[in-house]
Design a binder for these strands. Structure first.
Lengths: 194, 194
DNA sequence: TACTTAACGGTACGGAACGTCCCGTACCGA
DNA sequence: TCGGTACGGGACGTTCCGTACCGTTAAGTA
């Protein structure tokens, strides 16, 4: 049968998430309505609400469905080069469509939806941060970094300015900027104060 | 007359912003409706819309009305101590009520309202960043920092991780964390890679 | 003081989207 | 064959939006 009147289960789930991504790119994630998503997916509102309790939860799963090929760190032995490679591709992912706008919309939602904030941290931010720290730890264990090197703070200094630009100043997030941060982190901004 | 049935002009403006702050703290800025604000202020919706085109714009002016005593940098001659003082009080301001939740709500709105994002940068983020850079520049001119010291990048490294915690990980933003960042910025995280 | 004018509170309105509910249908396994 | 269940469709009451129109009232002007 070439015709499939309406399927069930995972089929519907995938169709709804696809409709979310399509509509999100067309009209923007902020203007997205559950009704429009349901209509686009050829589903009823019940079917949407059966799966996701809120628009934010739907956005979140749609984001993960796009990003499933998680960003894994390379390990060439050169910590700076590996961080560079990894952060460059993370920036590319978080900047371009469809993930970029969706990601920003999710962070926006997370500001007044604690369970979304928690999910975002547990299943997206946290794992990425853990991978960065793990790669840094390996470099430290191999003697490329001082034993006193503060791994989690280094991660925060690498991530913070990027999110600052993405969410606040909204200036373009370039590879060159990533390189400036890496350079500052490993070779310093200048000598200590007198 | 002790009784003031209803005043005009600046009186109404102030009353509406006050109602916004009160209601925001009571029910949360996300659930705030223009109708509820108008009712609380004893104003009609027309009067609110005459002044602000959107809820986000109202939030923005309400934020500035609280924060008007702008954060100015001390200048004791010690750059690290002055940064510490300034950032500590900025963190206190942005963490506690009523500014903290309101500020987060505004950044949330800015993600899908470009004019709010622009206003936020021009009248809040930008001026604060400028003051930080100016204070750093003075220290550099006085020889406390290397002539090659990257002022704007230092500002980003100071701000970024704080906003990262405020908006993403939502861990408590402590003075001790600020101190860790300052320490890393000026004395380094550890030696360069081999 | 008397008149004019602009801002005001109140209210009604159409529209959009919310989240819930019910109905009749189509698939599925026992 | 027969229940169980997920489904599409659609109606529902609600909230809030932003606008329009009232009669009233305070402030400015002569």
């Amino acid at each position: 049968m070439t015709d499939t009147p309406h399927r069930r289960g995972a089929d519907r789930t995938a169709a709804i998430m696809r409709a979310t991504l399509e509509l999100g790119q067309e009209i923007g994630y902020a203007k997205l309505s559950m009704e429009a998503v349901a209509a686009r997916a050829g589903a009823s509102k019940q079917t949407v609400y059966r799966r996701w309790p809120s628009k934010a939860a739907l956005l979140f799963d749609s984001l993960l469905s796009v990003n499933e090929p998680a960003l894994d760190y390379p390990d060439t032995g050169d910590i700076v080069a590996d961080l560079r490679t990894q952060i460059h591709s993370a920036v590319d992912l978080l900047t371009g469509p469809p993930v970029g706008p969706l990601f920003r919309a999710l962070i926006s939602e997370a500001q007044h939806a604690p369970q979304i904030a928690a999910a975002l941290n547990e299943r997206f931010i946290g794992p990425q941060a853990d991978k960065t720290v793990a790669r840094l730890r390996k470099a430290r264990d191999e003697g490329q970094l001082s034993p006193a090197f503060d791994l989690t703070l280094a991660m925060a200094i690498l991530s913070g300015p990027l999110y600052f630009q993405l969410l606040i100043t909204q200036e373009p997030l370039t590879h060159a900027y990533v390189d400036r941060i890496l350079d500052a982190l490993f070779t310093g901004l200048g000598p200590s104060p007198a």
